[in-house]
Design a protein around this nucleic acid. Structure first.
Length: 923
DNA sequence: GAGCACTGC
């Protein structure tokens, strides 16, 4: 009580500022100078679009200061603030009249600047008009004149910062002040600020019961964010131990000591108690709380490992590896002994392993052999909010397992936005909040979407470069094409600007970029220059770049969605979700306070992205479920059920492939197929290769196809050379298709001893080839496991093509008169993809293709010529003679064909619905 | 003559 009145009079508490999105940006409890700055800057955030800002000195603002209070209220309302009660305002004034006036001043300055900006905005997107240029000059002049009279030494134009009345406060200084305060407190009172803070936080972290206490959860969570202030530096030092110079202690010792500095440390006992008492616990642990590394250790220390392993899933391989290595260090054991990880192609565990990190897909695979997870005592599903296909399936499966195993503990770790949903899903499981730790990120945004965001991106980069303190810039773009466009335009712009100012180094990064070119992103920029990273979504979660201080986020990304009706995939440029926006902004606050320039308004965004399970091809998912003995996939306990027609399509396909029988139960073939971690059509192709004595070739092709479309590298300036190199794999007497070409690429590479140089010479990505080799090795092992003999038939291309058709017979297409193709079983026109070796050569009449993609047209990717009679030979249950009949009289036959097709369709439907009914009956 | 974000088993 005393503390409160003495140090922080209540009337001095800044008002709670709510951004338009509803987030509480600043909830400082202590009245300090920077609080007011923060208040101002937050207020600015809610009103200022990002563009050239003019720093108008106080003078103008002073003139406008004496406006009525009503107007002030209005202004506050319009900026999204909660209006202060008028008595509070009066008291506030009493206490700090002068300061308040200064704030007013600033506010009015901002308003004035807004007016100017609105005018600038009118000309936004278009190139500089005469009017704009004149205005620009005029304002510059005005500014300079005013500057003379004001004793202000700020030069030029800049984006508003968290400034005080004198201008821009250096963020570092700001934190130095905060730290000073922290030191003072420590000496002045018995309680250190850290202790006080921990006390405070301990009250904040609260347990809530499912959705019943939603408000509490949200409030509590948002509360814990930002009052770290003075502690931020303390903590970050602890966290980034590797950056510290002196190593008098061993790395392990240091790591162990640092454990105690993590925010989660204070909640250890409470957390353990909760886990003991509750079978399922949803944990909201913010970035930097230490949950991923600490919880498994706490559980181990509490003796959980006596009953079984502690498994912790991660959505990404690198995460599983690096976290495991960190924990092994902290515990002081060798990685792979007591602490290990398990990812595809790499099992770094032993019999001793009690804490096991793994990818979510890996746990799903383990469930196939160990349905009750008997060897585990605790399962932690980390980053559950990312909602990968695997985690979504895992949710339902572990929920089921938990019912039959009361001793099993389940911890679901998620970000705020979805915590409530997870809790509801797990039968109102408890939610526990652990505060995180991170640097503050100032968010500036546009009220309206940008008409030409690439241009705005370039302008913002230039502006940051000219007006903001040193620090690298990260720009989020949707794809390679955009990255290349921005790169060339930005270079041009920088040239136009001449030599004044320091240089910028542009680093593009996207997953298809060869590794050696990707490395450039991680090199620190030369002294005096600034790095500008142009990245796709890869920089959102997958890789972290040090030194980023500014993030420019246009708010879009490409999302893959699968259309079950047409069986076609397409990549769509889509607005990101609020969750993504937060994640992107956070990328600027990793090593120090950051700034994020949003070229959109957060309030226009959806809260979360559509989960993958609702937009993916489900063939593989359904086969996995069937193999786990889940009969009724329609009533499976999905957190967000996928569309019914997507499930139906998957069932139909699996039935056609022979993986399911007419009752919808998994067959022998299906059991074999499920062993292979590839798409069901590919696994059927592998299983089918046994018959054609070419399993060796087929697993190579399957591996190459699994890698995707990143085998051939096609740099912009060497396209012709790259294309010529690619066509070398197609030469031969026969019409070599894309599948055979891929086989040749692999075999040639193997012949050259897997040479990287050979890859360079042939415009092939060695990274992809190495991946293909890994996959092939794995497939080889599995072939052995299920007892398919490794046979080779390299010269019988027909045998290989037939084996391909064994899996891909539904993907057949026939040439039409106009040169396009038509799918045999679906009334759909498709085209050979321009990247195919069959593109532009004398067309083959019948083709089998690997996949359909919708870009500018409906394209077949990876196609190979085939003979129509093979369709009947291989898939007599699927094709009739009519389907492949060559010549026919025009009208009559067509009608009959249509009739027969629809008949087949009806048959299929009845079959499927029969499958369904049976399942329901069984249930 | 088009163009492919990112993961995972």
């Amino acid at each position: 009580m005393e503390k409160k009145t003495l140090d922080f009079p209540e009337e001095m508490n800044p008002p709670v500022v709510v951004q338009e999105s509803g987030e509480n940006l600043d909830l400082c409890k202590h009245k300090e100078e920077e609080d007011e700055d923060m208040f101002l800057s937050v207020e600015k955030i809610s009103r200022l679009p990002v563009s050239i800002k003019f720093n108008i000195p106080k003078k103008i603002a002073t003139k406008r200061r004496r406006k009525s209070e009503e107007e002030e209220k209005k202004a506050k309302l319009s900026s999204g603030d909660k209006v202060l009660r008028s008595d509070e305002i009066l008291r506030l004034r009493k206490v700090s009249r002068q300061k308040y006036m200064k704030n007013r001043e600033k506010k009015k300055v901002d308003e004035f600047r807004d007016q100017i900006e609105d005018e600038v905005l009118l000309n936004d997107g278009v190139k500089m008009t005469e009017k704009e240029v004149t205005e620009f000059r005029y304002k510059k002049k005005l500014y300079e004149l005013l500057k003379k009279t004001e004793d202000d030494d700020v030069e030029g134009y800049r984006i508003p910062d968290a400034y005080d009345q004198e201008g821009c406060i250096d963020q570092k200084k700001r934190f130095a002040v905060a730290k000073e305060r922290y030191c003072e407190r420590r000496s002045g009172r018995g309680v250190t600020e850290q202790e006080a803070w921990e006390d405070h936080q301990a009250q904040k972290a609260r347990v809530s019961f499912g959705a019943k206490d939603k408000k509490g959860v949200v409030d509590g969570f948002e509360f814990v964010f930002d009052d770290l202030k003075g502690l931020v530096e303390e903590y970050s030092e602890a966290e980034s131990g590797k950056h510290r110079g002196c190593y008098s202690k061993t790395v392990g010792e240091k790591a162990r000591e640092e454990r105690e500095l993590l925010p989660i440390h204070g909640y250890r006992e409470e957390l353990l108690k909760l886990i003991e008492e509750n079978q399922v616990l949803v944990i909201v642990g913010e970035t930097g709380s230490g949950k991923t590394t600490q919880i498994p250790q706490y559980l181990q220390e509490a003796g959980y490992t006596k009953r079984g392993k502690i498994g912790c899933t991660q959505p990404r391989r690198v995460a599983a590896m690096s976290v495991a290595s960190r924990v092994a260090q902290e515990v002081g054991v060798k990685l792979g002994h007591e602490v290990g990880y398990s990812i595809r192609f790499e099992d770094c565990t032993s019999e001793k392993t009690v804490v096991k990190y793994m990818t979510d897909g890996m746990l799903l695979r383990e469930l196939l052999t160990e349905p009750k997870l008997d060897s585990y005592s605790v399962i932690i599903i980390d980053e559950a909010h990312e909602r990968t296909l695997s985690t979504d399936i895992l949710f339902a499966l572990v929920k089921d397992v938990a019912k039959v195993r009361p001793d099993l503990r389940l911890i679901i770790s998620s970000a705020t936005l979805e915590a409530k949903k997870f809790s509801e899903y797990f039968d109102s499981a408890r939610i526990y909040l652990i505060p995180g730790r991170r640097y503050p990120v100032e968010k500036l945004f546009r009220k309206w979407p940008e008409p030409d965001y690439l241009e705005t991106v370039i302008r913002t980069v230039v502006q940051i470069h000219q007006t903001e303190p040193i620090g690298d810039i990260l720009v989020f773009l949707t794809g390679q094409e955009e990255i290349e466009t921005v790169e060339t335009n930005l270079k041009r712009r920088m040239m136009d600007l001449g030599t004044k100012g320091s240089e910028i180094i542009i680093c593009p990064i996207y997953s298809n970029l060869p590794t050696e070119l990707q490395a450039k992103v991680f090199e620190p920029a030369r002294k005096g220059s600034r790095k500008v990273v142009l990245a796709t979504n890869i920089a959102e979660t997958s890789l972290t770049i040090d030194g980023i201080k500014y993030v420019i986020d246009p708010g879009y990304c490409k999302i893959n969605s699968y259309n079950p009706r047409t069986g076609m995939e397409s990549l769509l440029v889509t607005p990101i979700s609020k969750a993504s926006a937060e994640q992107r902004a956070g990328r600027s606050g990793r090593t120090g306070p950051g700034k994020c320039f949003r070229l959109y308004n957060v309030k226009d965004l959806e809260p979360t992205t559509i989960p993958e399970i609702q937009r993916a091809n489900l063939a593989s998912v359904v086969l996995t479920l069937k193999s786990l003995g889940i009969q009724d996939v329609f009533n499976f306990d999905f957190m967000d059920p996928p569309p019914a027609n997507a499930l139906l399509k998957a069932l139909e396909l699996l039935y056609a492939l022979g993986a399911l029988d007419e009752n919808g139960e998994i067959t022998k073939v299906g059991e074999r197929m499920v062993e292979f971690p590839v798409d069901p059509m590919l696994s059927k192709m592998i299983v089918g290769s046994e018959k054609y004595k070419c399993s060796k070739e087929i697993i190579t092709i399957a591996a190459m196809l699994s890698v995707g479309n990143s085998i051939f590298y096609r740099p912009k300036n060497k396209q012709v050379l790259a294309d010529t190199a690619r066509m070398n794999f197609y030469v031969g007497t026969e019409n070599v298709g894309d599948h055979i070409a891929l086989l040749r690429v692999y075999n040639d590479w193997k012949e050259r001893n897997y040479s990287t140089e050979w890859c360079y010479d042939n415009y092939i990505q060695s990274k992809s080839m190495k991946r293909a080799r890994d996959i092939r090795d794995q497939l080889l092992g599995l072939l052995n496991k299920i007892g398919i003999e490794l046979t080779s038939n390299p010269n019988d291309l027909d045998a290989i093509k037939k084996a391909i058709l064994a899996g891909f017979f539904p993907h057949s297409a026939k040439l039409q008169k106009n040169g396009s193709y038509r799918r045999v079983k679906e009334p759909q026109t498709v085209y050979v993809h321009p990247n195919s070796g069959l593109f532009g050569v004398s067309p083959s009449k019948w083709l089998v293709y690997h996949e359909l993609v919708l870009t500018t047209k409906e394209y077949m990717r990876h196609t190979t010529e085939m003979k129509p009679e093979w369709l009947i030979e291989i898939a007599p249950h699927y094709y009739e003679l009519k389907d492949i009949e060559d010549t026919r009289p025009k009208k009559k036959q067509r009608r009959s064909e249509r009739a027969s097709t629809s008949k087949v369709d009806t048959n299929k439907k009845t079959r499927t619905s029969k499958v369904d009914t049976n399942k329901k009956a069984k249930r």
